Amino acid sequence: MGSVKDLTILMKPGAKKAGIGTFLFSDRYSVFDYGEMPDKIENKGASLCLVSAYFFEELERRGIDTHYLGLVEGGKVKRLDEISNAVNEMKVRLFRVIKPVKKKKGYDYSKFKEGLVNYLVPLEVIYRNFLPKGSSVFRRLDAGELSLDELGLETYPTPGTMLEKPFIDFSTKLEDGDRYLSVEEAKRISGLGEKFDELVEIIKQVNEIITEKTSKIGIRNEDGKLEFAVDESGKLVVVDA
């Protein structure tokens, strides 16, 4: 069980074959790293499930592979335009979660090598179009962990700055706590080799698609997080929701 959705494994993933599972989107919600909150938001689960399905289907229509298999209604897997009622269950492909080995100093990612297949890439990949008050970017700039050049800026930003180009950020996925990464370290621990550049291009495309769709209804796409897997054929796929 996750903090906001529950996973049921129908078939476990293997070294060379994807598994199958279902996500049950709940009305629970979490806040940053504080975890699950004590109350619930009515119909949040179904709403998030349907929005996720909409974008998964849109990404696939535009040639971006995902792990999405469809929505579950009445025990049957359906596309979004086939359901009769709002649902909160989604069927997906599952991939191996290979944990890095924890050492006295840091983590050992030597298992993640170019050519590895059917695994969850151990990164969270974030696009940032906007810098709101409280963004971690300000703290990292002050600490010297980020440079203005990396953000595509010439002067120190103020809260509310809209970036001319999205800033692509990386953090760990499978460590005890999230840790921001340089591009070089993200590429090294991902195991993707030359496919890493493809991952960056995919998240830029996803950002553009979400911005295109949300701007039509007056919503500003400030930032977002994606996760990726490499499937059994070696293709990058967008996963989670």
Results as ranks from 00 to 15, higher is better:
M1C: 11
M1A: 13
M1L: 12
V4A: 11
K5M: 02
I9Q: 05
M11L: 13
K12T: 07
K12R: 09
G14Y: 11
A15C: 00
A15F: 07
G19T: 12
G21A: 11
T22N: 15
F23P: 01
R28A: 10
Y29K: 03
S30Q: 12
V31Q: 10
F32E: 12
M37Q: 15
P38I: 10
D39R: 08
G45C: 11
L48G: 07
F56V: 04
E57D: 01
R62G: 01
G63V: 02
D65L: 15
T66F: 12
H67Y: 13
H67C: 15
G70F: 15
V72L: 14
E73W: 10
K76C: 01
V77Y: 09
V77K: 06
L80P: 01
S84P: 00
N85I: 12
N88Y: 14
E89H: 07
K91H: 03
K91R: 13
K91A: 10
R93P: 00
R96I: 13
V97R: 10
K99I: 10
K99F: 14
P100R: 12
K102L: 09
K103Y: 02
K104A: 13
K105S: 14
K105A: 14
G106V: 09
Y109C: 14
Y109G: 14
K113W: 00
K113R: 12
E114A: 13
E114F: 10
G115M: 06
V117N: 03
P122E: 03
R128H: 06
L131S: 06
L131A: 03
K133C: 06
K133A: 15
S135R: 12
S136G: 10
S136T: 11
F138P: 08
R139C: 01
R140I: 06
E145D: 14
L148G: 05
Y156S: 07
G160E: 06
E164H: 03
I168W: 08
D169S: 12
D169P: 06
S171R: 05
T172F: 09
T172E: 04
K173N: 13
E175F: 05
D178T: 14
Y180D: 07
S182W: 09
I189E: 10
L192M: 10
I202C: 00
I202S: 01
K204N: 06
Q205E: 15
I209A: 01
I210H: 05
T211P: 00
E212I: 05
K213V: 10
I217W: 03
I219T: 08
R220F: 15
K225H: 05
K225D: 04
L226A: 14
V230M: 06
V230I: 12
G234D: 02
V237E: 12
V238H: 05
